[in-house]
Design a protein around this nucleic acid. Structure first.
Lengths: 264, 264
DNA sequence: CAGCCGGATTGATCGACATCAATTCCGGCT
DNA sequence: AGCCGGAATTGATGTCGATCAATCCGGCTG
């Protein structure tokens, strides 16, 4: 790997503040690679040899069963993926494919596992990453089991707005059929869901969405900090773990003033 | 804490093979407590002060939104819970309540975080636990997004059979309405789902379920090692992480002979 | 520029699941 | 034993989302 790339890797949250020796171990055999759009990086069930760190582009994690298929998550920089499988040296539970041109750091799984044993700080950093992923999955599960399709879409739009720190206009980052699968619906129903939201101040033109009546949309969406993480994703909040901490702090600061929970 | 209890704690997977100093730090202020059935241990949104280790009994993790409520997971010994929140010192995303009389070890969160910083082996043990939880959640997500209610129930029964290492008869461990919520359906529909499975060799009498035609049931369930973890839960497989490793190894050993994946 | 192709939309219909309501079953209690 | 209350079951109906089918649209190519 080029030394300029190494410098860049050193700034990643996972490698910040770790011992130089550990860094050397962890990045031994690491490889910065570029992939074109629509490339399958890994198939579910495969043994996992590398930890992937997405530096540029978008990656989709998806999974199939009996001719059905669903998108579990869509990743944007900076994110690690299949970290869990690497830690246990287990098989991947999800397939990964690029949605656009990507720049990805690949680190041998052995190196990660060794570095964790050597450096408690690094092991803690890995734990934090795992926690971010776990809590994200818990949120997704609650989202799915507790809300309808329209509600999920409404909240998705509001989260997007918070993350992009935008005003009343928001850009969808993916094709609608992929968004539909992520939200657990068919493309047809996503269309109709957008239709339903028209009466709540949502106007769609291609991938641009105007939110002309936020209060009305929120009335329908009923966003909940314990499901939807509204952390802005532009400042120093780089990884999911940071967003989780932001969410808890925001929660405590506002003490449920905005989203009062029932007593009892 | 009594020294006999301390000895017992030392045998837990999470504390196996860690330095004596770390053990002392981690268990400082730890407390072994008993709770009656139907006790809320923690409410979602609350700050988390303790790591909980379930030693005896059953605990339900659940969550609510807008007057709806769902069970996310049901834990049996030995399991840690809300470990993720402890690691980040974040608020709980799920509520926890006992389903029966429970024996629970409570360890101050500070102690856990300090011990992780001190001892890489302990931090790795925590990581493994987190991985087990994460992969369990991914499996649950796939289960929900890819399968129908009847299919989920059929697979649930088959997993129970594997876990209990039983023959053709299986015992449900929870009330049916709780099982229904866990499987993402109403009690009414769980009843009807059992009805549907009658024609596939499933006979229900209270909490006892007879599986009289496993091949037929499997034909409907189409179990998949990447969704359903069929690891036996009686031998030396104590925690989810071990079950994940078992699953991967079983997978590699049988190389998809039993569940061939389509070539790609 | 015409043609083409994949994604998006719209409409009609179907199936799965939720809801509401009425019994029935079962365990604990007096 | 008889009673009581919550859980489970069963039936009737309604709602949401999936499926099938037919355009519509936008970008790309020949």
């Amino acid at each position: 790997m080029r030394s300029s790339d190494l410098e860049r890797v050193k700034t990643l949250p996972m490698f910040a503040n770790i011992a130089p020796d550990t860094f050397r171990v962890a990045t031994a055999g690491a490889n910065l690679q570029r992939f074109p759009a629509n490339t399958t990086l890994l198939r579910e069930g495969d043994p996992v040899d590398f930890l992937y760190v997405l530096l540029e582009g978008q990656v989709e994690l998806h999974s199939g069963w009996d001719d059905r298929e669903t998108v579990i998550a869509i990743l944007r920089p900076v994110s690690t993926f299949i970290l869990a499988a690497v830690v246990l040296d287990a098989d991947a539970l999800m397939s990964a494919r690029t949605l656009e041109r990507c720049e990805i750091l690949m680190i041998p799984g052995d190196a990660i596992r060794t570095a964790m044993q050597l450096d408690a700080r690094f092991a803690v950093a890995v734990s934090r990453d795992l926690v971010g992923a776990f809590r994200g999955m818990v949120r997704a599960m609650k989202n799915h089991k507790l809300r309808s399709g329209v509600e999920r879409l409404a909240n998705y739009l509001l989260v997007l707005r918070s993350a992009d720190n935008a005003g009343s206009t928001v850009r969808l980052h993916h094709e609608k059929r992929i968004l539909a699968s992520l939200l657990g619906m068919t493309p047809e129903n996503l269309s109709r869901a957008f239709g339903t939201l028209q009466s709540h101040g949502v106007k769609v033109q291609g991938s641009v969405v105007q939110l002309t009546d936020i209060p009305a949309l929120e009335a329908l969406a009923k966003p909940d900090p314990l499901i939807d993480n509204h952390a802005p994703r532009d400042g120093d909040i780089l990884i999911d773990a940071d967003a989780e901490i932001w969410s808890s702090e925001w929660n405590r600061a506002t003490m449920g003033k905005l989203a009062p929970r029932k007593a009892g």
